[in-house]
Structures are given as structure tokens and as C-alpha cells.
Amino acid sequence: MMSRITLALAIAALALSARAASAQTGVEKLYILNCGEGVAGDISRWSPGVNEGKSMDFVDTCYLIKHSQGWFLWDTGIPDAVAGMPNGLVPADSKAVTWRRPKTLAAQLEQIGVKPVDVKAMGVSHTHPDHIGNVEMFPQATLYVQKAEYDWPGANNEPRFKPSHPVELLAGDKDVFGDGSITILSTPGHTPGHQSLMVRLPKTGVVVLSGDAAHFRDNYDNRRVPTMNVSKDQSLASMQKIADVVSKEKGQLWINHDKAQRDTQKMSPEFYD
């Protein structure tokens, strides 16, 4: 009789242990980080034929995700060095964005007790400077990037990342941790290998991080494609792909540069779970 009781208790303990382990898998928290603030000189650059000569505030956003297998960072924003520039990062094109860095990425990580070395993996939506400004702050982190983006020649045909940086080259969507909680979505068009991110949070539900598949809500809603995008057809297809994912998952779309939306969100050190 005692052996049967002992066996039953052991089985019950194993079941509880399995449930506890299951509860600890996947995404635990998502922090929204301020990775730059700026003013666009003329937003018709992003919405051809509309808003000619109209200026607009932009934001630049990074996302730090706590997964049971380690920290994952999405986009790295404007370089932290811009925080020390009194006039900000002024573009040659007056229609583009003058960027400032009111908070450094390093300081925001420190505020929540995360060191750069703690970040084990990272991804960038694409290789424009306002998204890769601090990639080399994390030389040990595996960088997930589409091969089409990695191979896209930079200025003067220079590589877009240091050759020594550990990289996993992708050719489409990628389930980063194999549990469906963080999925990179291939969304080309803005650049050859642009990508977005789907995050499955335990309480908040599914969130899709746009990258620059759309720069602000009006462009997304009206399917407007910026003149600087490499492919209008791919851009439209990618916006539709995002719309399909959001619809299927009953999720939210968070648009990277949209200040009106970000003003409604919880910023680090607060988080979404």
C-alpha cells in the first residue's frame, strides 16, 4: 500500500513540475525603450502626394524582450553618441528627420538591471541608421537578419555590420526560440530584407512590431508607400501580410515611428506581460 502511495505522490510531483516548467517557457516581459525622438521636415517624403510641406514629430523605438531562454533585443535605435550632440543629428536632406537622443539605450538597460552582455540574441528590422545605431554595444549577441539585407551594399559598398559580429542569416520567417513566442516575419519592400516581429505575450496577447513596414498609422491604413522604398509591390504585400497576421491572431500592431501611438504606451521601466 505504501509503495502505491509513494508512486502516486511521485507522479503528482512530476505533473506539478511539468506544469511549472511549462508556465516558465516563452515570453515573460516586453519593455518599450525610447531610442530617439525627432522632427521630420516634410512628411510627404513618407506619404507621396499627401501632407506636402507638413512637419511632424517622430519617435524611434526599441524593444527588449525577456524570454525564458534569455534576453532578446529588437532594433537598437539612434546611436547613443547623439545624446551628446546639442543640436541633435541633423540630416543633409531638410525633409528628413533631425534626431535627438534624450535617453541612451545603455542607461535604460541599466535602469532595469540588464547589462549589454546579458543580451543573448537580437534582431533589427532593417539596416537604416536609426535602427542599427547601437548594434555593436552587443558584440556577443547573435544577430538575426535577412540574408537579402545583410548582402545589400552599404555606403561605398561597405558591409552593414562588422564581419566579426555573430549573425544568423535568414531567408524568410523565423521562430527564434522554437516555441512560437517570438517570430521574425519577412516583410521586404522598405529595404530588400526588411523584417517585422511577432511577439506572443501571456497576458497582452500577440503584438506585431512593424519596423518600417509603415512609418505611421495613416500610411498603414491607406497603404501609402514612401518614395525611398526599394519596392512598392513588396511594400504593399508586406503591409497585407502584417494585416493578415494581426487579424488571425487578434493582435495589436505597434508602429515604430508613430509618436501618437507611443504616447499611449507604457515605457520602460514599466513593461507588458
Rank of each mutant, 00 (worst) to 15 (best):
Q261A: 03
L89E: 06
L14A: 15
E149M: 13
N256Y: 02
G113M: 03
P129G: 10
C35D: 14
Y272R: 02
S181N: 13
S17F: 05
E136D: 15
W152T: 13
P188D: 07
F72I: 06
G77Y: 04
K259T: 15
F271D: 08
W71C: 04
G70C: 04
T227D: 14
V246S: 06
L7I: 07
L253G: 05
G41Q: 00
G84K: 14
T227L: 06
S44Q: 06
A106E: 15
A21Q: 12
N156Q: 14
P163Y: 01
K54C: 02
P129Y: 10
V199Q: 07
G70M: 02
Q108V: 12
L170T: 07
L14T: 13
H67W: 00
Y150C: 00
S231L: 06
G178V: 03
D258F: 04
S94K: 15
Y63K: 00
A13Q: 04
A8V: 12
S68I: 04
T227V: 15
K54L: 11
T76V: 10
P153N: 08
V135E: 05
A8M: 04
V145P: 05
F138L: 14
G123E: 07
G205V: 09
C62N: 04
A8E: 03
W74D: 09
Q108K: 11
S210T: 02
G133H: 03
S3C: 00
K266Y: 02
I184A: 07
D93L: 04
Y220L: 03
W152H: 15
V135Q: 02
K54V: 14
K174V: 13
A106W: 06
P163M: 02
K232V: 14
A12G: 03
G133S: 02
F58V: 01
A13M: 11
S235A: 14
P86N: 05
A10P: 00
T98Q: 11
D221Q: 13
S247Y: 00
D75M: 04
L105I: 14
L89A: 09
G193D: 03
V145R: 01
S44T: 14
R160E: 06
E110D: 09
G251P: 10
R224N: 13
V167I: 15
I184G: 03
G41V: 01
A243S: 12
E136T: 14
S238G: 07
V50L: 03
V39R: 14
H215W: 13
M85Q: 14
T191L: 00
N222H: 15
L253F: 12
D60Y: 00
T191C: 03
L170H: 06
I182R: 02
A260N: 10
N34K: 12
A18M: 09
D263N: 06
V225R: 09
L197H: 05
S268M: 10
E158V: 13
S44F: 08
E52Y: 03
K162Q: 13
A107W: 05
V50R: 13
R262G: 10
M1S: 15
V39Y: 05
F216H: 07
N219L: 15
T6L: 13
